[in-house]
Design a protein around this nucleic acid. Structure first.
Lengths: 341, 341
DNA sequence: TTGAAAGCGCTAACAG
DNA sequence: CTGTTAGCGCTTTCAA
């Protein structure tokens, strides 16, 4: 039999209420009884059941994180920082992978609402508008993470993907590239990154060739296939922007397989600055974001909603930063001319 | 106000008991009332509170996974497969990273027990014997994952690390290597892998030089530092066994930094077959394990314990397999002789 | 085939 | 400063 608040009460010769009060530091309790109760709780190794207190309307100190896919190390990183900071705040994180699939997203959502988790951090695509509206109406605490939902009044914490894409564009353009391929994943963040990239091109007066912008599932293999196609086009790109590191690295593999030299014959740049970008050869140029800070903000906002019932909704955006490593270089005139003939 | 079982009962003109019975498919209910109740639940979009039912002694359908560190992709993989299969079984997974730190392990443990999670899968080091014994005594459902605790009668699911180490040893030896460095992480699995490796050496009559076996924290940087030391020894190894992929890849980076050619001048082999091993250049030889199967078994055992209160304890061990890629090659006689002079 | 009543472990009025 | 009482939403005897 697990020890309950009553066991403590009985042992201390007081009522359960009193014990509850000392547990929660509420009301006024004489220092004497408080000490006594504390000691007994300690002796009996008593731990209050969070289930029971949650039933009385308190929070469960559990939040759910929805991510598309752990295989992409960037999502593992989301998890890492969110869990780390959650730990500090006393929250547990339940991990839900969704594959960006609406059904799986919803299944997690309803299941976890039944379990009364306090809130949700959503990095998964989450395209279902009906459900989303429903959640907002029911005031379920949630914050979108690196997943802009500009059409809705919803809390979100994001890196400025648009700016990141712009930086990539500028960088590539400054290196003299004009034929630039883009491999994107089906996610709002990719879209924003591309939007930024396009703007950079527009600002420099370089026209973008839409046929060079392709989408694929966010796997090494998927990217490899798309990159191969891109690289066997007549109007072969001299640079490719992978909208995340996995995509960029898949592209590197495709290039290597075709004997294309990086960065001499092809510049490649990624996004996310995952550990992978440091271990490939040559090390991948990419874009980094302040993930720890993003995670912290997301948790803070959520906890505000949960504990203080905070009503204001905010949209926090952080600045990304280029990390130039060794996969980007000035366009190789020789190759270009050779190709144009 | 959330709809409760009573709202349904009232609407249907029956008692809460009856509703409860149809929810749980218990007792005998006329097909008519059952249909009626079902319909009303559906109309009102009723979802039973798992908190309340958990308070009556039912399970929470939540299990906790303790891992050392998400930064190592192999642990992200553990998470992935466990969560995936958990999803199928209707269980949510709460992720706890511990850094192999006893205090953090215990904090998670007590917190989650207060939250009444149904059980624990432990991949984290977990050296605290007192706590462990306590958990066993209290019959907390738990299974150790790739984390052999041979001294205790505890359920565990592991890859046969000993055999994996043996395979690595055999492979390296068959390539003619005699001076082999080993970089290990502080974890039971590393110890087993080394034990297997030693046995292989013994079987081939090759003596192992203990000064070539070193330990470090499981980071790229840590491994790099240790590898540098190893590679600047007089008795420089011709091959290095990284007890996991991170360690092996850190070693690759150290070698590259020193201009050492892989595999011509130095063979390197890892363990875990993470995605990283495929993207480094040259691709890393390593050892693979049937993670999906391991995860499945671990969950199945745990669920047996939770739902059927299964008493028997089992230790499941699966066979790993060498994946020879391009970082291992026959020892380079030239280098050897050159070195010996 | 159905329901009344008790209770899981805790907290929040309210009274004393 | 402390205790009584009621109740969160559900399940489980036991009786009808």
């Amino acid at each position: 039999m697990k020890t309950t608040i009553y066991d403590i009460a009985k042992e201390a010769g007081v009522s359960a209420t009193t014990v509850s009060k000392v547990i929660n530091n509420k009301g006024r309790i004489s220092e004497k009884t408080r000490k006594k109760i504390m000691k007994i709780m300690d002796d009996l190794n008593y731990r209050p059941s969070m289930l029971a207190s949650a039933m009385k309307g308190k929070s469960t100190y559990t939040i759910a994180l929805l991510i598309p896919d752990i295989d992409n190390p960037i999502y593992a990183q989301y998890m890492k920082y969110i869990e780390e900071y959650g730990q500090k705040l006393g929250f547990s994180i339940v991990m839900c992978s969704t594959g960006n699939d609406r059904e799986r997203e919803e299944k997690h959502l309803t299941l976890l609402r039944q379990k009364s988790v306090d809130g949700f951090i959503i990095a998964s695509l989450f395209k279902n508008e009906t459900t989303l509206k429903q959640l907002i109406k029911e005031k379920v605490p949630l914050v979108f993470f690196n997943n802009p939902k500009i059409e809705y009044s919803i809390d979100s914490v994001i890196v400025d993907d648009y700016l990141g894409g712009y930086q990539v564009g500028e960088h590539l353009l400054s290196l003299g590239h004009k034929k630039i391929g883009v491999i994107a994943e089906e996610h709002t963040s990719s879209e924003e990154r591309i939007r930024g990239y396009r703007q950079a091109c527009a600002d420099k007066g370089v026209s973008v060739d839409d046929r060079l912008i392709v989408t694929c599932d966010s796997t090494l293999e998927g990217a490899q296939i798309q990159a191969e196609k891109l690289l066997s086009k007549e109007e072969k790109p001299t640079a490719i922007f992978g909208c995340n590191d996995v995509l960029a690295i898949g592209t590197m593999q495709a290039a290597k397989a075709q004997g294309i030299l990086i960065p001499t014959e092809l510049s490649i740049i990624g996004f996310d600055n995952t550990m992978m970008s440091r271990i490939v050869d040559p090390p991948l140029s990419t874009v980094t974001m302040p993930l720890d800070e993003l995670a912290k903000q997301a948790m803070d906002i959520l906890v505000q909603k949960i504990e203080k019932n905070n009503k204001i909704t905010q949209r926090i955006s952080m600045i990304p930063d280029l990390v130039i490593r060794q996969t980007t270089a000035p366009v190789n005139k020789a190759v270009q001319t050779n190709f144009i003939k």
